[in-house]
Design a protein around this nucleic acid. Sequence first.
DNA 1: CATGGGATTGACT
DNA 2: GTCAATCCCATGC
Length: 192
Amino acid sequence: MALAMRVVDAAKALVGCTLEHEDAVGVIVETEAYHEVEPAAHSHIGMTPRSRVLFEAPGRLYVYRSYGIHALANVVVEPEGVGAAVLIRALEPIEGLGTMAMRRGRTRPVDLCSGPGKLTQALGIELIHNDTSVRDGPVRIGPPPRGWERPRLVVGPRIGITKAADLPWRFCAADSIHVSRPWPPEMRRKAA
DNA sequence: CATGGGATTGACT
DNA sequence: GTCAATCCCATGC
């Protein structure tokens, strides 16, 4: 499968950008790409009531419930009619840490947004935000904050899936302690 | 209409 | 390392 897909490039480019909702803001440090041509994607089965948003024009937010408990947030990519999205898996929290801690019931910054279910809880992202615009809000994607370097990326296989688990479509900021577990081998070595 | 399965997390052995 | 919680939705009868 060709690796040079728009959604893969978008997954890389989103690392370093900001995700914000109300007063809570974080820098994206981990993403995964999903595309209709591979079976792990919700869009793989075609357009259903749930997957419809994935086929919309780029820039829509796709939020779904995972394991009956967590809301997971994705950014729709690829032209209208192609079902693809980038899953936001972890943030480095930079604003509104008090609000996040309240919502999470945890105080350590590293426990606030270091996982796809954690970050939606910390930012207050829920199913009502499904099919909203990441340009116009209320949940917004923004450019990297001033003074932030674009992070070096570590690539690895996607997490928590059973199908197409071999595709290296997970992208982590190499030096961030806010990446979700398990860390890619390359990061484990360094942090020990 | 009934059933089964998750793109997870936190608690516990 | 194991395991349960919990709900939306796809599927099949």
